Each structure stands twice: as C-alpha cells, then as structure tokens.
Simulated assay, not measured.
Amino acid sequence: MNVFIVNGSPRKEGNSAFIAKALLEKYPDATLLNLNEMNYKGCQSCYTCRKENTFCVVNDDLKNVFESLAEADLIILISPNYYGFVTGQMKLFLDRWYCLKDANRMSKMKKGAKLFFVVTQGAQNRDYASNTTSWAKKVFESFNLKFYSYIVPGCKSDSLDMVKMKIDDLKMHLNMFV
C-alpha cells in the first residue's frame, strides 16, 4: 500500500509529530513529510498545472511530491488546531493541491484513495475542531477521496500524555477505515 503521512506541526517533538512517528512504525514504507522542515511556498496562481495538465511547476521542495501523492492509496494528514484551523504550514501545502485537478476540475487522485485527517488540540471540547473537519471533508471529498477525521483533544503543548493514551484508539480507527 502506498501511504503518505504529512505532519503539519512546527514542533519536532510535539503531539502531531508523535502521531506521525507512531504511524510511520505502522507503515514503515510510507513517505513522511514534515512540512516545517521543507522549503516551499503556497500556490502562485500561475495556472500552468491546469493549462498544461501537469503537476505543480513551482520549483521548491514540493515540486516532486504531487505526482507521487496522486498515486497514494492512503494519505494521513496531521495538524494541530490553530485558532480553529490547520497550521499555516498545512494550509500552504493544501493550497498547492490545486494541481491535483485537471483543466476540467477532475481529480487526479488514484481511484479509491483514502484520506485520514487527524487534528490535535489543547481544548478538551472536540467541537473546537468541527469547523476544520467540516471544511476538510468538503475539500477532500471534492478530490474523490474517501474521508475520515479523528480529533485528539486535551493535547497540552508540554506533554504527550494524551496522544500516548489515544494512539491505540487512533490506530484502531485507522484500521477500520482502511
């Protein structure tokens, strides 16, 4: 199975990074992208990808990612909840997904591909991520991706206790989804 794990957190040892590492153990052949360690920018609205039916032509660390991402069977996106949304790093990455649709706005993603969206947050109330997960569901289903979201509440910035407690449950949900 071709798996992509994308960590949108800037913290190398934080809750989202812990989840990414734990899932990399589950999928050792997966491609792991730690977005904060990459040099890239958002979509430049050049429209070359749509006009020439190609992938993104911006010359940065994401240039060669999208063709492989389009062939993934499973994409796992992990982001902390920043003010009710994904991190800036994740948003810039997702803006570049514009190239993953053709000139007719048809998805270039592999048929039957799945996207598992994980949100970590400090707040105990899972509803704080509901706007983010609702938005994500609409966006990723527009790429014909089967979508599932998982929220990990109570993630303190100075402690991994909650993600350590929830990682087996998260993996169980992932197993049921896949």
Rank of each mutant, 00 (worst) to 15 (best):
M1G: 14
M1E: 11
V3H: 05
I5M: 02
K12P: 09
E13I: 03
S16G: 10
A17E: 02
K21W: 00
L23N: 08
E25I: 12
K26M: 12
A30T: 05
A30E: 04
L33S: 05
N34K: 14
N34A: 03
N34Y: 02
L35I: 12
N36K: 03
E37Q: 14
G42V: 00
C43F: 11
S45T: 10
Y47T: 09
T48A: 10
R50H: 15
E52R: 13
T54C: 09
T54L: 04
D60M: 05
D61W: 04
L62W: 01
L62N: 01
V65K: 05
V65F: 07
S68K: 15
S68G: 10
L69W: 02
A70I: 01
E71P: 00
A72L: 10
L74I: 09
L74T: 08
S79L: 05
P80R: 02
P80Q: 02
N81C: 14
Y82K: 01
Y83I: 06
G88F: 04
Q89I: 02
Q89E: 15
Q89D: 15
K91V: 01
F93N: 08
R96I: 04
R96A: 05
C99A: 08
C99P: 03
C99R: 00
K101M: 15
D102Y: 06
K110R: 15
L115Y: 06
F117R: 09
V119M: 12
Q121G: 06
G122T: 08
G122C: 02
Y128M: 13
Y128L: 13
N131T: 12
N131Y: 13
T132P: 01
W135L: 15
A136V: 09
K138I: 13
F140C: 08
F143Q: 03
L145Y: 06
K146Y: 00
K146G: 06
F147V: 06
F147G: 05
F147P: 02
S149I: 05
S149W: 04
Y150F: 15
V152G: 00
P153C: 07
C155D: 03
L160D: 03
D161M: 01
M162R: 15
V163Q: 08
K166M: 14
L174N: 11
N175L: 08
V178I: 12
V178Q: 05
